[in-house]
């Protein structure tokens, strides 16, 4: 019972964090929310994986967050307001998040029945992250937001995949992919800021 309650709290946490991540323009808040998403995902992955393996997901996620955070910290530019339709898009984003949440609520029971053993909280949390990640990718062209969207989507997928595949090699490969994505994003952020600095100097 306690496990069930903790799981649903993690799902609620994912819903709040992913929606706020969609709305947030402050990179510090965004990275905090990403770290929170990884924590909630860790709680849900514990349903299917032993603590040691599940911890890999949490540690990788926080390493990813730290890598992006350290890169962003070294860039002085302020990104808030760079998206052309902000803040007009705020309600639009909330509406999209609500649609995703509704779709997930409807679909998750069906999927849980089709693939027994996954667990309803895991399916709901995973689908929520995938949906929110996809929305993120659809409405932004900024490097940081794109990488955050991809990481959100991958976290959702990894949660679901953990329920069906417990290979250590896959866990390792997916962790490397997450880190690689964060490093690629950091590299692009630095390249972008370097050109902007050059343009300003000129």
């Amino acid at each position: 019972m306690l496990v069930e309650i903790t799981s649903w709290i993690a799902v609620a946490f994912i819903l709040v964090a992913a929606t706020t991540l969609l709305l947030s323009r402050d990179w510090r808040l965004s990275l905090g929310l990403l770290a929170a998403q990884y924590l909630a995902a860790f709680v849900l992955v514990l349903h299917h994986w032993p603590l040691g393996m599940a911890t890999v997901k949490l540690v990788t996620g926080w390493m990813v967050t730290a890598a992006i955070g350290m890169t962003r910290l070294s860039i002085s530019r302020d990104e808030s307001g760079a998206e052309s339709f902000w803040p007009r898009g705020q309600w639009f984003r909330i509406s999209l998040a609500a649609i995703v949440a509704l779709l997930v609520l409807v679909a998750s029971t069906g999927i849980e029945e089709a693939i027994p053993g996954l667990g309803l909280p895991v399916v709901t949390g995973g689908l929520l992250l995938i949906g929110m990640g996809l929305i993120h990718l659809g409405i932004t062209s900024q490097i940081l937001q794109t990488i955050l969207g991809l990481l959100t989507l991958l976290t959702g997928f990894e949660m679901l995949y953990a329920a069906v595949e417990s290979s250590i090699l896959v866990a390792g490969l997916l962790a490397v992919v997450d880190l690689g994505l964060a490093l690629a994003g950091s590299y692009l952020l630095l390249a972008d800021s370097a050109t902007e600095t050059e343009e300003e100097a000129a």
Binding site: V177, G180, A184, L188, A191, A194, E198
Partner: peptide, 21 residues
């Protein structure tokens, strides 16, 4: 995942450090 890792390794080749992505 290995194909994905290879794709991510291409990124520093495609964008030089002085080039706007």
């Amino acid at each position: 995942p290995m194909l994905e890792m290879a794709a991510l390794l291409v990124v520093p080749l495609l964008v030089s450090p002085q080039q706007k992505p």
